[in-house]
Design a protein around this nucleic acid. Structure first.
Length: 280
DNA sequence: AAAGATGTCAACCGCGACGTA
DNA sequence: CTACGTCGCGGTTGACATCTT
């Protein structure tokens, strides 16, 4: 679709660093009239700035509650874990760090953490993966597209005899990569729902989704969740103990997912989360 | 002390999603 | 359905600060 005319082409507008006076004008205007409608806001406020520039300045600098600098160890750890799950989705990551902006998180990652992450880990030093369940940490999984899904004839034993010619091999992944790959939508939805805890998430779902019906948007999100769950069952998950299928496979993957997500969301206990989410 | 290298971070840019007429 | 405007996102830039030689 069409793009807005680029304000950078307008030479009558100020560019570059904001002055204290401009900051004051913008803050005072938003205090009275609220934010939004950035295109016209700059004109109404009497600023020679394009709407985009005003929006950015407000969101990243002037907005109340912004924390700047001094990212704590806890925050740093959370950024690393979220980045492992979500990749460069800075706004989602920043959404889990109160007072931090996507720009700050992005800058922090690019200038500090990306280099740190690239360094080889010393053998004796604790690694980010040390908090993972033993089972998941030790295991490499193979995704094998299962041509028999839905036949209803497979059990754990028959899965072991699947002929290589009847399957399509997908490159091996570490389990957390697999989880990140298949769960990002679920996680993203949870973040976007703005649920501060798993318990709230469940209450939200039970109250709005079940009792009072769903909006089309909510219905769509539920579909995404269901599709993701079905995805698990269209793959075979294997480790050196054997092949996991059906319920076993789901539990295997879910065990990891529950523990990781409950930590990430800094919420109720893992058991609460598991119980509540499976009911959903 | 000076010059070059490197780090930091605010701001810019272009794109895609979305809403609306 | 199309055209257009707005918004938000992520990649990139460039000015300034700090470090190193």
């Amino acid at each position: 679709m069409g793009r807005s005319p680029c304000c950078s082409k307008d030479s009558s507008l100020n560019r570059g660093a904001w002055t204290a006076e401009e900051d004051l004008i913008l803050s005072e205007y938003i205090k009275i009239h609220g934010d939004g409608g950035w295109g016209s806001l700059s004109q109404k406020a009497g600023l020679k700035r394009c709407g985009k520039s005003c929006r950015l300045r407000w969101l990243n600098y002037l907005r109340p509650g912004i924390k700047r600098g001094n990212i704590s160890g806890d925050e740093e750890e959370l950024i690393i874990r979220l980045h492992r799950l979500l990749g460069n989705r800075w706004s989602l990551i920043a959404g889990r760090l109160p007072g931090r902006t996507d720009n700050e998180v992005k800058n922090y990652w690019n200038t500090r953490l990306s280099k740190k992450q690239a360094l080889p880990k010393p053998e004796s030093a604790p690694s980010p993966g040390d908090h993972l369940p033993v089972k998941a940490k030790a295991v490499k999984i193979t995704k094998v597209r299962n041509k028999f899904v839905g036949s209803g004839k497979l059990n754990h034993q028959s899965m072991k005899s699947i002929d290589a010619a009847q399957t399509v091999k997908i490159p091996e992944l570490l389990i957390d990569e697999f989880i990140a790959d298949t769960n990002s939508d679920i996680f993203e939805n949870m973040v976007e729902w703005g649920c501060p805890s798993i318990q709230n998430n469940y209450q939200y779902c039970s109250q709005d989704f079940r009792s009072e019906g769903m909006s089309s948007g909510q219905s769509e999100q539920v579909s995404v969740l269901q599709n993701n769950m079905e995805q698990f069952e269209s793959f075979t998950v294997a480790d050196d103990q054997g092949i996991y299928s059906g319920t076993q496979q789901r539990h295997f993957v879910d065990d990891f997912r529950y523990s990781e997500m409950s930590r990430l969301l800094l919420s109720d206990s893992e058991e609460d989360w598991k119980e509540n989410f499976t009911q959903f």
